[in-house]
């Protein structure tokens, strides 16, 4: 099963990651090789085997819903690429034409 350059470009869009033409050219054949290698898992007869998401059995962990100390606004914003009025400043998230 082959993965095409167009599919890699689509996956990059889904991943919110621009890729240059050179990167697409390099990645498509590599991913094709890797997928051919990992496809070996399909050789295992496992129809009736339950999946494992975590090696250790886990249950939901709850704590009391009480107010606790947290980061101050200044600490939370200290590493922000841009901040304004005690808030993260982000690029526009809506299209101006809509």
């Amino acid at each position: 099963m082959a993965i095409t350059r167009d599919e890699v470009a689509h996956l990059a869009r889904l991943s919110r990651m621009s890729l240059s033409d050179a990167e697409l050219d390099a990645l498509a054949p590599q991913l094709d090789q890797i997928l051919a290698a990992v496809a070996r898992v399909t050789e295992v007869a496992a129809a009736d085997i339950p999946p494992t998401s975590h090696a250790v059995p886990l249950t939901n962990v709850f704590r009391a819903d009480v107010t606790r100390p947290s980061l101050s606004v200044d600490e939370a914003l200290a590493a922000a690429p841009a901040a304004e009025d005690d808030r993260f400043r982000v690029p526009r998230i809506l299209d101006p034409d809509e």
Partner: peptide
């Protein structure tokens, strides 16, 4: 643009592979 500039080749490979 940030993820293109900030991630190296192996991370990009694995993000794409995982998304697939």
């Amino acid at each position: 643009r940030t993820r293109e500039a900030g991630f190296g080749p192996e991370v990009k490979r694995r993000v794409i592979l995982g998304t697939y």
